[in-house]
């Protein structure tokens, strides 16, 4: 295998488009609703249940059908379920924080709990998109009515206009009592939202 001699690293396999036919039979209902644990178990994640309703739009304002959307968030106490936090007493045993769905139409509903703010960060959910025509792209969305947005380092690195594009709006309650938040994720063109580069570091 060829190696990058400079840093003695292996050259990565190229990311590629997911294409239009990500198998629907790979869907897992447990990854589309993090607001409850497995069925039949007397247990529930801590926190305020929310429903994030999103629309994925292309540069012509059309829905981006067939897109795979992944979610990653902290629990209600602001702790991520990652090796770095193993053994943390604020880990919620009934909440992992990774979600995934494939939207047939380009609209989605993701059930979860409101992520807690954590050290220096406002409540947020990382969103990864895999769609036909593109390779993986990532962004992070916030909640317009939550505190801490004004001092979040990621939000504050953006213009006011771009900050607004990443802010989900609270729009009422569902019958089940969950708070509903809505967001338009415009992938390209006039109202394109900011996407982030998780391969290049600042200063590199």
């Amino acid at each position: 295998m060829k190696a990058n001699m400079q840093a003695d690293l292996l050259l990565p396999t190229n990311e590629d488009t997911v294409g239009p036919y990500f198998p629907i039979n790979f869907s897992d209902p447990l990854l589309e609703d993090l607001s409850q644990f497995e069925s039949g178990i007397t247990a529930q994640p801590q926190g305020v249940p929310i429903i994030l309703k999103g629309r994925l739009l292309d540069r012509y304002g059309e829905l981006a059908n067939g897109t795979v959307v992944e979610f990653w968030q902290a629990n209600a106490k602001g702790v991520y379920r990652s090796p770095k936090h193993e053994g943390d007493s604020d880990i919620d045993p009934w909440f992992w924080g990774y979600g995934r769905l494939r939207t047939e139409s380009g609209e989605f509903e993701f059930k979860t709990i409101m992520p807690g703010p954590c050290a220096d960060r406002a409540s947020n959910i990382t969103i990864t998109l895999f769609s036909d025509g593109i390779s993986r792209i990532v962004t992070q969305i916030f909640f317009a009515d939550q505190t801490g947005n004004a001092s979040d380092p990621l939000l504050q690195s953006l213009s006011c206009e771009d900050q607004a594009k990443l802010s989900a709006r609270h729009e009422g309650e569902a019958d089940c009592g969950s708070k509903i938040y809505t967001i338009d994720i415009v992938m390209a063109g006039e109202n394109e939202i900011p996407f982030f580069d998780d391969l290049i570091r600042e200063g590199e």
Binding site: D58, R59, Y60, G133, I134, S157, F195, F196, D197
Partner: peptide
Amino acid sequence: DQRTPRNRLRLIP
């Protein structure tokens, strides 16, 4: 063409 972001990706603090 329809779905590729046109702006450069932003750096993450």
